[in-house]
Design a protein around this nucleic acid. Sequence first.
DNA 1: TTGCGTGCAAAGGTTTTGCATGGCA
DNA 2: TGCCATGCAAAACCTTTGCACGCAA
Lengths: 142, 142
Amino acid sequence: MTYTRPTNYKTRQSQHVLDYMASLGDRHVTVSQIARHFIDKGAAIGQTTIYRQLEKLVSLGRIRKYTHGEGGGACYQYVAGIACVEHFHLKCEDCGELIHLDCELLDEIERHLLAEHEFQINALKTVFYGKCGICRQKELNT
Amino acid sequence: MTYTRPTNYKTRQSQHVLDYMASLGDRHVTVSQIARHFIDKGAAIGQTTIYRQLEKLVSLGRIRKYTHGEGGGACYQYVAGIACVEHFHLKCEDCGELIHLDCELLDEIERHLLAEHEFQINALKTVFYGKCGICRQKELNT
DNA sequence: TTGCGTGCAAAGGTTTTGCATGGCA
DNA sequence: TGCCATGCAAAACCTTTGCACGCAA
């Protein structure tokens, strides 16, 4: 692996972005959500800076980037430790909500696919599309 | 499953898009590649039309959409066979192979997500990303 | 002082939308 | 004839780039 380790000056902005990501735990956010957060807080950070900070944090392994496409744009998520790798996501096709799913069934899926189908699933990239409970309720009431 | 079947007039453009997708077998293409194809052929189709046709074909299950993200934009791929509605798909991130998975575990996943997480999965749209057996072998031999 | 970090503005892409026209059924 | 389909242009987005200035080390 030949890549140049990014420089990492400590600035107000870089600190704030990392702190904010960490404060979210394992919840994921988009760039525009991050930007809005700092605007609301009264300490706006330029979008360009956010993009560049996130890029650095990704290459440092501090956060993870998901390209779920579908409108909203990329999502970023803080990496707390090693345990955070084992997650799948559900995305509602109606409301766009991205649901973070932690469930032991998923270990079973992973094990099964590998054992029976020789397929090693990438939990980071895999997203289950469908309809969330809230939107299903709404539809039933129509 | 309650969704409104899209209308499907037979027009020159709609026919050409479907025929072209089918002619590619399981290779995937982007919208701009499709557009270029028809321009080169001397029978250009408006980009808007291509987008709208692809959207219909996706909802009919005739083609599949991948949001690889990473610049290029979404990829589309023809789905051969009607039986594809009944199962899930695995896509190898290394070789791009699309694997059709027929396995009772999937019913279980579907049931579990609905019962425990109130989430109704859409099998047409959901793709499991990961690494296929062949590519895993290759990697192990390196 | 040095050179990275910042952020505005503008550019680059992809995808969506408005609207008048064309064409299938 | 009644709609849907088409496609141009423009808009809406997300993301990247250019460049001058700010600021950490």
